[in-house]
Amino acid sequence: MLNKKNMLMTIVFALIALVLPLVINAPYQQHILILVLIWATIGTAWNLLSGYAGQVSFGHAAFFGVGAYSAGILTLHYSLSPWWGLILGPVMSMLIALPIGAIAFRLRGPYFALATLALGEIFRLVFLNMTEFTNGAKGILIMPSITSKIIYYYAGLGMLAVTLLVTYLIVHSKIGYYLVSIREDQDAATSLGIPTTLYKNLALLPSAFFTGLAGAFYMNYVAFIDPNIVFNLTNISIMVILVVMLGGVATTWGPTIGAALYIIMGELFRTTLGSANVLVFGVLVCLIIMFLPNGIAGELDIIKRIAQRKKAGLSGGV
């Protein structure tokens, strides 16, 4: 349940997000902000399946890429506006999620992760080699109808807001409790009458939907995709894991915080450290994983819970 303080924080964040592009008006900085919104959306979507339900996916690039290609192919073959991809992309991602779930949910833990990794790579290779349909490695280039960064920013903000809201509602319902139960102990969950495969799919489908939405949005914004960009294992599938780990796994705001820090730090290092940027970045990620294992929002939650427990203990008269 939203208490007053959380509500206030959300409103403050929303207001800052709304006025931010008016204050920061250089196109480069606005571009960074839009990337943050895209990554926050993918992170939030990944977090539902892998953070809350504990089914760690190494294959989210498949959903991102299918979303992006849905938008691209609409323009390439059917001369439709790529904006229709915002509807088609998420739906296609959900459709491919069904067989992916049917295969991968037979496996648990690291085996699930490996299966999703392989499935994600299969999509990259298929899109790379189906040259007649996808243009293969040449990629798809579109002429964007909108060039104003401000419009993309607000569209991206809307996308993130919807993703956050839907995820929040799922997590704070019976489904959310069931997902966390499955993560904590699948056998115990089964013994409590939870149909585990069904509920894993209830996490996977919205997760694929919003990742696909972010993919379609990316196609519209960047206007060029090829399979090695949007189905990339390290730059999409692994990056989303790092983003969420940095921000806080299984927290509402973790993926958004993680995306903001990750993208901004990445850009700062790239512009200031020259070719050493990846190295410094890697060391920093290691340090964060070692000393903030629950991510930034995760550690905040623990501090909050300790305070709450003290309060509960006092009023309960233990």
Partner: peptide, 24 residues
């Protein structure tokens, strides 16, 4: 024993109670 480890005692029991109700 298989407790739902990172959930509180209350949340553990709620996870069982959800079998008969959809309301939090």
């Amino acid at each position: 024993v298989k407790p739902l480890r990172r959930m509180t005692v209350q949340e553990n029991v709620m996870a069982g109670a959800f079998l008969r109700t959809g309301s939090i």
